[in-house]
Amino acid sequence: MSAVSETHDNHHHDHAGHGYGDNSKLYIHIFRDDLGSKVGMWLFLFTEVLLFGGLFFLYFGYRVADPQAFHDAALNLDVMLGAVNTIVLLTSSLTMVLAIVAIQRDSVKLSLFYLAVTIACALTFLVNKYFEWSAKIHHGIYPGSDHVAEMPQGEISFFGLYYLMTGLHTFHVIVGAIIIAVCMVFIVKKHINKDKYIILENSGLYWHLVDLIWIFLFPLFYLLH
């Protein structure tokens, strides 16, 4: 939170900027509440955590029911690919936070550079995932395939969860990359600047959450040997 952030204060009305969407000309009604936006973002992140939480609950249930099947099925996953993706995501988290530091210090170009690196990391992650999944699908391991249907039931659950959890996570990576790209546009257009960077901070929170979930997915799926 910077020095310009506003605490809640009903008296304060800026006569510039956007206000009520439906009457922006007539009724200018704006006050900034950066802490409020941030708390809102955190609440949204909790809903995301609980969305994944449902899948983690299922993982917990099925793994306790048949640990051996999970162990056997996990042998099909490539630890190296998983580890590389972990490092890629951790690095992207670092560059994300550095981009915020840069914008706080008014280094616009440096900030843009760090965000570009973050997106590059996201793309690397996706390419990596593409190779990982296409290898699996090539071996006939995908939901509903005949090969999977012949497996022991615990392993079917494992691969079901594997595709669902990493799939949902990958979806979040794609969304996060798009959000970061939008942030870059905002920085170029000076909507995000030294005094007003709550959008970048909130996008950063989202991106770190994507990282956070992967930190748990990695040992739960790849490190069962």
Binding site: P143, G144, P152, Q153, I156, S157
Partner: peptide, 14 residues
């Protein structure tokens, strides 16, 4: 739609 085997008891779901 895709028979993930998450809930369907025929595929080991609970």
């Amino acid at each position: 739609a895709f028979n993930f085997g998450i809930f369907d008891p025929a595929l080991g779901g609970d």
